[in-house]
């Protein structure tokens, strides 16, 4: 089975995000970059399918040179090879352009099933997977917590949790699956895996090589840091009754919530 896992490199959830003074983006200095956690579920699911059906897992990523580290992480987990789309023209690309570049790369290789994270934790757009499926003209099963293939690997049944229920979605391969938390527990790369990953082939391509024209449809106009959190207030007073009265007054008059 030819399995594809798309991975994005994002700042670690604990990283300190500072917006550049001109609002053109974030200050990348001192940021620890990691694999988007939802993509990690996708990679893990891809590896489990490979273990079950045999075949190959190709990791496809897009971004500057530093993204290679994330690609190697996916290779260390057990993926076989990588495609790294690296082109300054694609820096800050919107969801559509990103999906178009991924589609161009994936269209050029055999693909039975493609995994993406349901969204990336940096821009939270959640569109790349669906657009990718549209561009490739194949079904999409999104935000899934369970993905079961039939024994022939021809059809898929996936579970998507929604408010108060679960949807059982069926589809045929090839298809795009976007992974939600709960799909699996991603493995920790073994040391031989890490060492082998250094020697696995990664094909670096630019937009021209893929035949992608950069046609941005949505542009981030400005990054605005969230307002600084105001200091908390400790309600004073001699006894609980006075404190409670003061708290009620503040909630009503200042916070205007009651």
């Amino acid at each position: 089975m030819n399995i594809v896992a798309c991975v994005k490199q994002v700042p670690d959830t604990e990283a300190q995000i500072k917006v550049k003074p001109d609002g053109s983006g974030i200050d990348e200095s001192g940021i620890k970059w990691v694999m988007n956690p939802y993509d990690e579920y996708g990679v893990e699911e891809a590896l489990r399918l490979k273990e079950k059906f045999g075949g190959e897992v190709t990791v496809v990523s897009l971004g500057p040179a530093r993204v290679m580290e994330t690609t190697r992480t996916a290779l260390a987990m057990g993926s076989d090879k990588g495609i790294h789309i690296c082109d300054p023209a694609l820096d800050g690309a919107d969801a559509y352009t990103t999906a178009a570049a991924l589609a161009a790369a994936i269209a050029g290789i055999p693909h039975d099933i493609i995994f993406c994270g349901q969204r990336a934790i940096d821009d939270d757009s959640g569109q790349v997977g669906p657009i990718l499926a549209e561009l490739l003209g194949i079904p999409q099963l999104t935000v899934v917590t369970k993905a079961d293939l039939d024994v022939d690997g021809k059809t898929i049944k996936a579970i998507r949790p929604i408010e108060g229920a679960q949807l059982l979605i069926e589809g045929t391969l090839p298809c795009v699956v976007t992974a939600q938390k709960g799909l699996n527990e991603p493995r920790y790369a073994s040391l031989p895996g890490i060492m082998k990953a250094k020697k696995k082939p990664v094909d670096t391509k630019d937009a021209a090589a893929l035949g992608v024209t950069v046609a941005v449809k949505a542009k981030v106009a400005r990054f605005i840091p969230p307002p600084a959190r105001a200091a908390g207030k400790i309600v004073g007073g001699d006894d609980p009754a006075t404190k409670a009265a003061e708290l009620a007054r503040l909630l009503r008059e200042e916070a205007k919530v009651i």
Binding site: K32, V34, E185, R187, Y188, A189, S190, L191, P192
Partner: peptide
């Protein structure tokens, strides 16, 4: 190192140390 078999809580600690 070879089997990646260890208590899952430890995996969180390892990731945290890495990141």
């Amino acid at each position: 190192l070879m089997e990646s078999k260890f208590p899952s809580a430890l995996q969180t600690a390892f990731r945290n140390m890495e990141n």
